[in-house]
């Protein structure tokens, strides 16, 4: 499996749409993180090319947090786009916010 080790706070860019995400938590192992079925790349580094898988163009939403099934990784979508996020072929899901009362 191809992939990369993600640093906390790293910004990743989609190869097929506007989507940008930021790493909030991630295991220290190589991750095959994709958007629209195509591997994502670290913003500012060499871009990746590939054809989007139409069935994975399920869109991302700015401000939502995306996690895998056991929440071992969490990403903040800093810019929404047309592609959906997945780890290999497994789609990531939106994490439901834990509402804290507004304090300022």
């Amino acid at each position: 499996m191809s992939g990369m080790i993600l640093k906390l706070g790293a910004k990743l860019q989609s190869a097929v749409c506007d989507t940008q995400i930021m790493v909030l938590t991630a295991p220290k192992t190589e991750l095959d993180l994709r958007c629209g079925g195509v591997p994502m790349y670290v913003a500012g580094e060499d871009s990746v090319e590939g054809d989007a898988n139409e069935s994975l163009m399920t869109e991302t939403l700015t401000g939502k947090r995306y996690v895998d099934a056991d929440e071992s990784m969490e990403f903040l979508c800093t810019k929404g786009g047309a592609g959906g996020l997945s780890l290999g072929d497994l789609p990531l899901e939106i994490k439901q916010p834990k509402a804290l009362p507004s304090s300022d």
Binding site: L24, T62, G63, K64, L76, P97, A99, S102
Partner: peptide, 9 residues
């Protein structure tokens, strides 16, 4: 901010 506030809430 990322702990206490939800974007566009």
């Amino acid at each position: 901010i990322l702990t206490a506030v939800e974007y566009a809430s």
